[in-house]
Amino acid sequence: MAPERDLSSARNGRSWSLVDLGAAAAVVLAAVGVIWSPKLSGAVAQATGALTPVTVLVDVRGVPVANPSALIQAAKREGKVAIVIRNQPHGSVDVKQVLPLQRLLTAVQPNGTVVTAVDPNQATLGSLDARFVLQGQGRKSGGGVVFGNQNLKVGAPVEIEGLQYRVGGTVSGLQTGGQ
């Protein structure tokens, strides 16, 4: 009878093995990953009203393009672009406007006056100079605007990708829905 009693006491007083502790840690880490996932936190922020419309102005300058006006028209027609912030894909955002920018030449005259003129080489060299006005969802934070789970400020480099192009630009302006 003594061996039977020892077996039942071993079942009731079971200790945790290293494998059990590893499995429990994996379950806890998986639960934390689900709770803090960017998509879930974005869905929670949208449901609670923390997300507001954010307008992002992106300037693209000096990108060699065979037909800049056709690229601008294609971006307007598509109506959406994929945006990459600090090498992290954000997803797609709406294109509200694409404004062509004129490059200006500045010269100081012998009498001390400054003269500016439109660069005539811009049309013949085929380079894209444009301002993309993008609309998405984000929230205002103390350090700028959180857009696509990335803190975005004026001067930050971003990439914009359409069906037939991918260009790098710089954020030149931010506006939240309350501004």
Rank of each mutant, 00 (worst) to 15 (best):
Q175C: 00
L71S: 01
P120G: 02
T55W: 12
G22W: 14
V145N: 11
A82W: 04
S9F: 08
Q164M: 06
Q73T: 15
G148P: 05
A43L: 12
V28M: 12
G126F: 06
V98D: 01
T176W: 02
W36C: 04
A50D: 14
P64F: 09
Q109I: 05
S92C: 00
R5A: 11
G42A: 15
G91D: 03
T55Y: 07
D94Y: 11
V19M: 09
R139Y: 13
S172I: 06
S9V: 10
L125Q: 15
A47T: 03
S92P: 04
N151F: 05
Q122K: 09
A26I: 05
T113A: 07
G169A: 09
K153P: 02
A23W: 02
T170P: 02
G112I: 02
R5I: 12
G112C: 01
V32I: 15
V108M: 07
V114P: 03
S41W: 07
L7Y: 05
G13V: 08
Q88V: 12
I85M: 05
E161L: 14
S8G: 04
E78Y: 08
R61Y: 13
V171W: 00
A10C: 09
V114S: 06
P3M: 13
Q164W: 07
H90Q: 13
Q137E: 10
V95G: 03
N12H: 09
L163I: 08
G138C: 05
G177A: 13
P120Q: 02
V167I: 12
A43E: 06
R139S: 13
L125T: 14
A10E: 11
A66K: 15
A70Y: 01
T106W: 03
V108H: 04
G91K: 07
L174T: 05
P120Y: 03
D6R: 12
V158A: 10
L57A: 09
A74K: 06
Q102A: 08
L152S: 01
V133K: 13
N121G: 06
G144V: 03
L71T: 03
A24T: 07
P120I: 05
L51V: 02
G49I: 06
N87R: 06
G42V: 02
T170W: 04
F132H: 01
F147A: 07
Q150T: 13
S172H: 04
L174Y: 00
L105Q: 11
T48D: 10
L7R: 10
V115E: 13
I83P: 01
V114Y: 10
P157D: 08
A50M: 12
A156S: 15
S9Q: 13
Q73G: 13
A26M: 01
V145F: 09
N67W: 11
V118Q: 10
R86G: 10
I72V: 08
G177I: 07
V84L: 09
A123Y: 11
Q73E: 15
P3L: 14
V60Q: 00
E161V: 14
S141G: 14
V58Y: 07
A75K: 01
